[in-house]
Amino acid sequence: MKIDLTDTTASKINKALVQGRRAIGTPAVGMVLTMVIVTDEENAYDAIKAAEQASHEHPSRTLVVIKRHARTPRERTQSRLDAEVRVGSEAGTGETVVLRTYGEVSDHADSVVLPLLLPDAPVVVWWPVDAPDVPAKDPLGALAQRRITDMYAVESPLRVLESRARSYAPGDTDLAWTRLTPWRSMLAAALDQARLTITSAAVESEADNPSAELLARWLEARLDVAVERVETAGPVVTGVRLGTEKGEIVIDRPEGPLATLTLPGQPPRTLALKVRPTSELIAEELRRLDADEMYAVALRGKDTEENA
């Protein structure tokens, strides 16, 4: 069920949510958090779709904030809020409110969002694109326990990575880090099985890949070795090589969903290591709402471990 509201208020939106739930016979129970998505029109559809798919694991109220850019002098002075309320099959397993802000309302989106948050429930803010320089100090980011950004969506990801390292606050995370979970799990399992001292390391990837840089910094911090960055054709991270006194531990994934794991003295093994869709990444991030300390370590590299 969809309800369209033009030039509306947060109070009217809350009433529309109640009306929609009554119409389909669904009470407002079972939702575990509020997901706030801050995006533009171009990326809104994909972001909403990913959130709806993630809601099957984490039923939530999703608030999508789309700040509309004024095209005429009249629009620049016009202050307005339009909303689209979705409940039932239109909103996954929760409910979705698409908020389009105009004029001065865009500068105070937090005042629109605040009355629509689920009471006594965690808040997660996700910027698929155009994330603020310091997410924790953004008015919407300040409402949240977790703040999700994506360095893949910027023109200079490694420059942004350095900025995020300087401005990190507990609760910050990035999908460039989330994409590494299968790699980190596989590396941890390989090291546990091999039980060898690591003497060198290399991460192979396409140029300027933020996930590869985070992985290299994480390995430097955890293994206390210098990690070489090796540029390949990609796509994304294509391999990790760990040197030991008995040979190399190698995870190689040049393309496709399969990787080859090689341990010293053992035959190669083929393992699944696919590139996951955004919905799976968001679902993973919603499983834990405390501070991601390992992300902080990966951002700051070896210095984080030394200063701990």
Rank of each mutant, 00 (worst) to 15 (best):
A131R: 12
A51K: 00
V112N: 02
S200E: 14
V240K: 10
G20N: 05
L214S: 08
G301S: 06
E90P: 07
P135A: 07
K274D: 14
D107Q: 12
G94P: 09
A131I: 01
E90Y: 12
G239H: 12
V129Y: 03
G92K: 00
P268L: 05
A221Y: 01
L286S: 00
A51F: 00
P157R: 08
T278I: 12
L143K: 03
G30T: 11
E42V: 14
L299F: 05
T9Y: 04
D192R: 10
T260N: 06
V105R: 07
E162M: 07
D46I: 02
T9R: 02
G141P: 03
Y152F: 10
G256F: 08
G301K: 00
P182F: 05
R76C: 07
D292S: 06
D208R: 14
T39Y: 01
R229W: 13
V125G: 01
T178M: 09
E306W: 01
L299H: 03
I13P: 04
G94E: 04
L273S: 12
E231C: 04
L175M: 11
R222C: 01
Q193R: 11
A165D: 04
G247S: 11
E206C: 07
L271Q: 06
V38W: 00
A50Q: 00
E255D: 13
V36Q: 00
D130A: 15
K137P: 02
R74W: 10
E95A: 04
L17E: 06
V124Y: 00
P235G: 09
L215Y: 05
S60L: 07
S11M: 02
T26D: 09
T270A: 05
A70T: 15
L215T: 06
I251L: 15
V113S: 02
I37T: 00
T197C: 09
P27R: 08
N209G: 03
E84D: 13
T244C: 15
P182W: 10
L180F: 09
D224V: 05
V250G: 09
V154R: 13
T197S: 15
P210C: 06
P132F: 10
A121D: 02
S89Y: 09
T96M: 07
G88P: 09
Y152T: 08
P210F: 10
S163E: 12
R86H: 15
Y168L: 03
D150R: 03
I148P: 00
T39M: 05
G239L: 09
R288N: 11
T181R: 14
L175H: 03
I148D: 01
T39G: 02
A201W: 13
A207P: 06
T238Y: 14
T93L: 13
V113N: 04
R22M: 08
E245L: 14
S163T: 15
A51V: 00
T93Q: 12
T34E: 01
I198F: 09
S200N: 13
V230E: 10
I3F: 09
E213Q: 13
L196Q: 15
V124N: 00
I66T: 11
D120I: 05
R300I: 00
A70R: 12
P139Q: 06
R229I: 12
P268V: 11
D82A: 15
G234I: 03
T173I: 14
A51S: 14
R287D: 10
S279V: 02
A188D: 15
D120K: 12
R22H: 11
A202E: 11
T238C: 04
K49Y: 04
R147E: 01
D150H: 11
D133F: 07
A165L: 06
W183M: 15
